[in-house]
Amino acid sequence: MIRLKHVSKDYGGDRPALTDISVNIAKGEFVFLVGPSGSGKSTFIRLLLREILPTQGDIYISGQDIKALRSWKIPFLRRNIGCVFQDFKLLPNKTAFGNVAFALEVIGRSRYMIKKQVPEVLRLVGLEDKLDSYPGELSGGEQQRVSIARAFVNRPPLLLADEPTGNLDPATSLGVMTLFNRINRSGTTILIATHDREMVDSMRKRVIALENGNVVRDQLRGVYGYED
């Protein structure tokens, strides 16, 4: 699903954000990307979204060399990658339904499809009774569920999350993680960048640990493993 070959990214600071990273993630895996702030987690995610290009090395998603992708094809890459962020990135003037529908509208899905799929995915994340609520009327956990619904409504084969529980309390975080787990079981590959120790330790999934731009550990059924 994802293959990084000797990838480095240098923003021009005193040291590269990522140095010679080689990682393979198979289809259907659930992977945590852990590490302290500034270890290169966000750079990793942004490279996969092709928001930035690697300074060196190659990145393949579903066998496709995304470095060679023409700029007009990038949107089509992103349609196959769901994305969740710490700050939810919801539009405050749209309801939960509207926010999820927006993702389908802008890729040209028909009204019929939107009316059918949006309530379905909101039911999946447990918000079937909040369709008409605005983000301001929802709790943090509910907002993050809306954003997960938006990321998943198009049934992408890959879901990326950058600190999805960063703004949530532990109990709510657990609910969100359970949701990711459920989505993963439907066959979607999931990569979560986080420094939520408890979460990682309780899930016992594959853990890739970054430190100063290097992969320091890559273990199946791993734990967070740092002492903060």
């Binding site: 007009w72 949107p75 089509f76 349609r79 994305c83 539009l91």
Partner: peptide, 17 residues
């Protein structure tokens, strides 16, 4: 800009934006 950012994220084509 916020809407545009989300549109890019969910794969709206360049011309659509």
């Amino acid at each position: 800009r916020k809407e545009i950012g989300i549109m890019k994220l969910v794969g709206a084509s360049n011309w659509f934006i």
